[in-house]
């Protein structure tokens, strides 16, 4: 059920798990869209020559996934800030899941704080972040 108002949010609740499209086709398309044409984003073999496990999703794409996840949960949410830490590469063509949990509710200002994590199939955290969103009362 999509969240529409602040009073529908409970402290500590998990957001629905979000499965980002981390296929090489998508990460390549994204990298080219924003002008990041480095082979490490578009070519597994070239990325391996740079010491990576494979082509990686641009960090800003991972950040975009986090925001999209919030809007999937609460389409009316206004994201006021999102801070993202790139802990390890998100490797293209590997499955990832994004989880989120509500860590604070500011009733006075109608704001909610959410911790977000991008993890791979092994459960390793690749990216994590915190977002502050405003919701209608």
């Amino acid at each position: 059920m999509a969240i529409k108002k602040l009073d529908e949010v409970e402290f500590g609740v998990d957001l629905p798990t979000f499965i980002p499209d981390t296929s090489l086709a998508t990460t390549t398309q994204f990298a080219k869209l924003i002008g990041w044409n480095a082979p490490r984003f578009t070519d597994h073999e070239a990325a391996k020559k740079e010491g990576l496990a494979g082509a990686m999703a641009p960090g800003v794409l991972s950040q975009g996934y986090l925001v999209a996840m919030i809007h999937n949960w609460a389409p009316v949410a206004e994201v006021q800030s999102v801070d993202t830490v790139f802990r390890a590469p998100v490797i293209a063509d590997e499955a990832h899941t994004i989880t989120g949990v509500v860590t604070d509710i500011d009733e006075d200002n109608a704001k909610v704080e959410i911790d977000l994590t991008v993890a791979n199939e092994k459960g390793e955290t690749r990216v994590f972040g915190t977002a502050t969103v405003k919701l209608p009362r």
């Binding site: 980002p20 398309q29 994204f30 869209l33 924003i34 975009g64 999209a68 809007h71 999937n72």
Partner: peptide, 14 residues
Amino acid sequence: ETTIQYAKLCGETA
């Protein structure tokens, strides 16, 4: 067109 494409690739639905 770029912001729409960005939104689609990120998985935005709004």
